[in-house]
Amino acid sequence: NRLGIIYEIQGMKAVVLTSEGEFLIIRRRKDMKVGQQVSFENEDIYNV
């Protein structure tokens, strides 16, 4: 599992900021809110 803070939500995608200072786009889940810490898997990351 990886951890990140939700920075922005766009439709079915969420932008998270990881503890390494990396911004990633992941698959959104219904319970996500901006500012929330979430765990996610590598499979949830969109390749940009």
Score class of each variant (00 low, 15 high):
Lys13Ala: 09
Arg29Ala: 11
Ser19Asn: 14
Gly21Thr: 01
Leu3Ala: 10
Lys30Pro: 09
Glu22Gly: 08
Ser39Cys: 15
Phe23Val: 12
Gly4Arg: 00
Asn1Gln: 10
Val34Lys: 12
Ile25Asp: 09
Gln36Glu: 10
Gly4Ser: 02
Gln10Leu: 06
Gly4Cys: 04
Lys13Leu: 05
Arg29Thr: 12
Gln36Ala: 07
Val34Trp: 05
Val38Phe: 03
Val48Leu: 09
Asp44Lys: 03
Gln37Ile: 10
Glu43Lys: 10
Glu43Asn: 10
Ile9Lys: 01
Leu17Gly: 03
Ile26Pro: 00
Gly21Cys: 12
Glu22Cys: 13
Ile26Phe: 02
Tyr46Ala: 09
Gln37Leu: 10
Gln36His: 12
Arg2Leu: 13
Ser19Phe: 10
Ile45Thr: 02
Ile6Gln: 00
Val38Pro: 00
Ile9Ala: 02
Asn47Trp: 04
Gly11Ser: 08
Leu3Thr: 12
Asp31Ile: 03
Leu24Tyr: 06
Asn47Ala: 05
Asp44Gln: 05
Asp31Gln: 11
Gly21Trp: 03
Ile5Tyr: 07
Gly11Lys: 08
Glu43Cys: 11
Glu41Thr: 14
Arg2Thr: 06
Lys30Asp: 13
Tyr46Arg: 07
Asn47Cys: 15
Gln10Gly: 08
Asp31Pro: 07
Val16Gly: 00
Glu20Ala: 13
Glu20Met: 12
Ser19Gln: 15
Phe23Cys: 12
Ile9Gly: 01
Leu24Val: 14
Ser39His: 15
Asp44His: 04
Lys33Cys: 11
Gly35Cys: 14
Leu17Val: 12
Gln37Gly: 04
Glu43Gln: 04
Ile25Gln: 11
Val34Glu: 07
Leu24Trp: 09
Leu24Lys: 06
Gln36Thr: 09
Ala14Cys: 13
Asn1Leu: 09
Asn1His: 11
Val15Ile: 10
Gln37Met: 15
Lys13Asp: 04
Gly4Thr: 01
Arg29Ser: 09
Glu20Val: 06
Gly21Gln: 03
Gly4Pro: 02
Leu17Cys: 05
Ile26Gln: 00
Arg28Trp: 15
Leu17Phe: 13
Met12Lys: 13
Val16His: 00
Val15Glu: 02
Met32Trp: 13
Gly21Tyr: 06
Gly11Tyr: 07
Ile9His: 01
Ile5Arg: 10
Asn42Glu: 15
Leu3Gly: 13
Lys13Asn: 13
Val16Pro: 00
Lys13Cys: 14
Asn1Asp: 08
Glu20Phe: 07
Val38Thr: 07
Gly11Arg: 07
Gly35Thr: 03
Met12Glu: 15
Leu17Met: 14
Asn1Ala: 12
Val15Cys: 12
Asn47Ile: 11
Gly11Ile: 04
Asp31Arg: 05
Ser19His: 07
Gln37Asn: 11
Gln37Asp: 06
Phe40Pro: 03
Ile5Asn: 03
Glu8Pro: 00
Arg29Lys: 14
Lys33Gly: 03
Met32Cys: 03
Leu17His: 09
Tyr46Pro: 02
Lys33His: 11
Ser39Gly: 03
Ile5His: 06
Asp44Glu: 06
Gly11Met: 04
Gly4Glu: 01
Ile45Gln: 04
Met32Phe: 07
Arg29Asp: 07
Gly4Leu: 02
Val16Thr: 01
Gln36Pro: 00
Asp44Arg: 02
Tyr7Leu: 15
Val34Tyr: 05
Glu22Leu: 12
Ile6Ala: 01
Ile6Arg: 00
Ile26Asn: 00
Val34Ala: 05
Ile6Gly: 00
Ser19Trp: 04
Tyr46Ser: 05
Glu41Met: 13
Asp31Thr: 13
Ile5Lys: 07
Tyr7Ile: 15
Leu17Asn: 02
Asn47Asp: 11
Met32Val: 03
Asn42Trp: 15
Asp44Phe: 05
Val34Thr: 05
Lys30Gln: 15
Arg27Pro: 10
Glu43Asp: 14
Arg29Gly: 10
Lys30Ala: 15
Lys30Arg: 10
Ile5Trp: 10
Ser19Ala: 11
Phe40Val: 09
Met32Arg: 01
Arg29Leu: 10
Glu8Val: 08
Glu43Leu: 05
Ser19Ile: 08
Glu43Arg: 07
Gly21Arg: 02
Ile26Ala: 01
Val38Leu: 08
Glu20Leu: 09
Tyr46Lys: 11
Ile5Met: 12
Val16Gln: 00
Asn1Lys: 10
Met12Cys: 15
Ile45Trp: 06
Arg28Cys: 15
Arg2Gln: 08
Val48Phe: 03
Glu22Asp: 07
Gln10Phe: 11
Gly11Leu: 11
Gln36Ile: 06
Asp31Asn: 07
Gln37Pro: 05
Gly35Pro: 01
Met12Thr: 11
Ile5Ser: 03
Tyr46Met: 11
Gly35Ala: 05
Lys33Ile: 14
Asn1Thr: 11
Leu17Thr: 06
Tyr7Asn: 06
Val38Glu: 01
Val34Ile: 12
Phe40Ile: 06
Asn42Lys: 06
Leu3Val: 13
Glu22Phe: 08
Glu20Ile: 07
Ala14Leu: 06
Gly35Trp: 04
Lys13Pro: 00
Gln10Pro: 01
Phe23Arg: 05
Ser19Glu: 10
Asn47Phe: 06
Asn1Arg: 04
Met32Gln: 05
Ile25Gly: 04
Gly21Lys: 06
Asn47Lys: 03
Thr18Tyr: 02
Ile25Trp: 08
Arg29Gln: 08
Ile5Asp: 02
Tyr46Gly: 08
Thr18Ala: 02
Ser39Asn: 15
Leu17Ile: 07
Gly35Tyr: 04
Lys33Met: 14
Asp31Leu: 03
Phe40Arg: 02
Ala14Ile: 10
Ser19Lys: 14
Leu24Gly: 01
Val16Glu: 00
Phe40Ser: 02
Lys30Val: 15
Glu20Trp: 02
Glu8Thr: 09
Val15Asp: 01
Leu17Ala: 05
Ser39Thr: 14
Glu22Met: 12
Arg28Glu: 02
Val16Leu: 05
Arg27Tyr: 08
Lys33Glu: 15
Ala14Gln: 01
Gln36Met: 14
Ala14Tyr: 08
Lys33Asp: 08
Lys30Thr: 10
Ile26His: 00
Glu8Gly: 12
Ile25Pro: 05
Gly21Asp: 05
Glu43Met: 04
Met32Ile: 03
Leu24Pro: 00
Gly21Ala: 02
Arg28Leu: 14
Arg28Asp: 03
Gln37Trp: 10
Asn47Pro: 11
Thr18Arg: 01
Glu41Tyr: 12
Arg2Val: 05
Lys33Thr: 12
Arg2Asn: 06
Val15Arg: 07
Val34Met: 10
Lys33Leu: 13
Met12Gly: 13
Met32Ser: 01
Asp31Trp: 07
Phe23Gln: 05
Thr18Phe: 03
Tyr7Gln: 14
Ile45Asn: 02
Ala14Asp: 00
Phe23Ser: 09
Val48Arg: 02
Lys33Val: 14
Ser39Arg: 07
Gly11Gln: 07
Ile6Ser: 00
Val15Thr: 13
Phe23Ala: 06
Ser19Tyr: 09
Glu20Gln: 08
Val34Arg: 04
Ile26Asp: 00
Met32Glu: 02
Tyr7Cys: 14
Ile9Val: 06
Thr18Asp: 03
Thr18Gln: 01
